[in-house]
Write a protein that binds this DNA or RNA. Structure first.
Lengths: 194, 194
DNA sequence: GTCTATATCTCGATAGAC
DNA sequence: GTCTATCGAGATATAGAC
């Protein structure tokens, strides 16, 4: 492994650590030392890879976006759009313990970034959510349902809402209850298969 | 006005300012100086009324709780539980501009407080949401609908979800679209009146 | 490229005059 | 009760040795 590869590996370790720690502790309560420790990189060295803390936040957001893209690409392999959406809901529900402790990574990040007067990064958090909305709308459209954008809004909004309540009340079972309802809702839409 | 009354008035000014500024800027990005300035109280004097910053956060939460109680008390005067719930949704939608800029006061506060390792205040944010859930469930129960707790979860969750998306995408129209859907949903539940 | 040491700044909290 | 002055902790960011 040459120098370039090692360097980019440290960068990737920092990015992964940032995504994890910022989700758990939030942006404002996380120090560069926290991220450096988690990535096993000396604090002062962080500045060689990221000029500011905001650049680390940006990298964390890109990491979440990448995870989400990976998930939707996997779901795209399912032949039926309805099954893709139901699998998405099931993926959410399977993350209920994490949601109870820290909420949705993108959602909680978006909330925090929107509190900043300097609106440099909140648009980027919004973009991640926007891309999920677009993918979801595409599935509804493929199903031939009317107003696919509204249906996508309803589904993603339900996800963010149940994540927030699960987190605020520290009750993962909320994800089970709402998830089950969403699955039945998806089944009820449009023409029945059987 | 005697000294006691003036003192408690300053306390109330600080509480009101805390509720407003903490909603707009979040807990971590808000300094005591911000709140003191907004309340027109000298910074050092804050400590006469609140021993710590956390006590101010707690006071802000109590303020939001009081506003919510005031709203539900007003809605309780409507004879039909369904009309109460629909009026609640309309109250939410009417706050769409504020939601686009700062999100739901209680919801965003809960998200931020849940990020703290020291879990002193996150339970209190959860309690505010819990009380709203309970009131909502009582309305569904009075309508004679099955699983009123699940229905309450769905409604409050939808509110938190649409608030978060409205805020993240800075688009108040999201509240109109989802609000309209919720009103139709409430109408579709149970026996039709006409 | 890597890391230590430290400058600089901001904030929460306190001491004490009035 | 009110307010000024300031302490001390802890954060980001930088300077410079290696």
């Amino acid at each position: 492994m040459d120098r370039r590869a090692r360097a980019s590996q440290k960068r990737r370790r920092l990015t992964a650590a940032a995504a994890r720690v910022l989700h758990e502790q939030g942006v404002e309560r996380t120090t560069l030392a926290d991220i450096a420790r988690e990535a096993d990189v000396p604090v002062g060295n962080v500045y060689y890879y990221f000029k500011t803390k905001d650049e680390l936040v940006q990298a964390a957001l890109a990491e979440h976006q990448a995870h989400l893209d990976e998930l939707t690409r996997a779901l795209d392999r399912l032949p039926d759009p309805r099954d893709r959406l139901k699998a998405l809901v099931e993926a959410w529900v399977s993350q209920r313990e994490t949601a109870a402790r820290h909420g949705c990574p993108t959602g909680t990040l978006a909330v925090e970034l929107d509190k900043r007067a300097d609106g440099t990064l909140d648009a980027e958090a919004g973009a991640v959510i926007r891309r999920l909305l677009d993918w979801t709308a595409a599935q509804f459209r493929e199903l031939g349902l009317p107003a696919p954008d509204d249906l996508a809004l309803t589904l993603v909004s339900a996800y963010q809402g149940m994540s927030l309540l699960t987190n605020a009340l520290r009750d993962p079972d909320i994800m089970n209850r709402e998830g089950y309802r969403l699955l039945r809702w998806l089944d009820s839409l449009g023409p029945k298969d059987e």
